[in-house]
Amino acid sequence: MQAFLKTGKSTAGTGDKSQGAPAARRKLPAPWVEKYRPRNVDDVVEQSEVVAVLRKCVEGGDLPNMLLYGPPGTGKTSTILAASRQIFGDMFKDRILELNASDERGINVVRTKIKNFSQISASSVRPDGKPCPPFKIIILDEADSMTHAAQSALRRTMEKESRSTRFCLICNYVSRIIVPITSRCSKFRFKALGEDKVIDRLKYICEMEGSCYRLKGPEHVINTADLFEMSGVIPEYYLEDYLEICRSGNYQRLEQFVREIGFSAYSVGQMMEQFVEFIVDHPGLNDPQKATICDKLGECCFRLQDGGSEYLQIMDLGCCIILALK
């Protein structure tokens, strides 16, 4: 390990920079995810309302305290980074403190690091004389994993430093943020991306990357079995088999089938997600049956998300379906 670490000089901070300007310095290998992060609020895909509000803010040169929430991968972090880059230009680095769950973020950090940063005064002119908004932004990524104590400590700081600092909290679950904080922020909800927007963006990226991908075309990419395989989607016939076996009411067969799923390494969580739609649209079930099954399905999904065992959850679901279909 030591030798492993010593092979090169430490170049701390390259990671940081690659986010903002991935290809600016020597062409570092960066995944497309980083390379095609939007640099501008208008580049942000979908979230039109949020973008509209933010654009106004950027034009006015001011930002409210913000709380961005929504499912992962909808561009929350990208949006705020892009917005602040537009507002601050080159001074972007100095005016932003980004903290995420990988940094220590207990109550002490709120008390020291955040406070110290928020107390630095920010001038209203850039070094080159252009005007610039006189505040800094603190981005608290993954704010829902902050402890309640730290959140409570934060709310006082937010008020006290409101003249010179804007806070931007990013989270997946807004319910995990304490109410005093949400009431101090303007909330922006990011919705899941629509299919066509994704295709547009992928097309654009493919064009940028060169011709080899253009031949196939993005629609093709999205619908092939290959990509299904990559994203872990389970083939439809598994779901049909599952329901069929449950209909037969044979526990042994159910167990056999569940083992088979395990061997084939498909994710039970994924399967349950697909199963919801499958059940809801299924013509062969009556409404009470659907209700019973979906009720159980919800419970099992929740437990699974919370770390429950795959085998037990899907067996439980299976038993429930067997009883419901009897």
Binding site: T11, T14, G15, D16, S18, Q19, P22, L28, P29, A30, P31, V33, E34, N100, A101, S102, D141, E142, G232, G262, A265, S267, V268, G269, Q270, L304, Q305, E310
Partner: peptide, 21 residues
């Protein structure tokens, strides 16, 4: 999750899991 993004220039992560759930 954030660390993965942050240090993407110098390191890649391969995770081996039994189930993605």
């Amino acid at each position: 999750r954030r660390t993965m993004e942050k240090y993407v220039a110098t390191c890649r992560i391969i995770i081996s899991v039994n189930s993605t759930s």
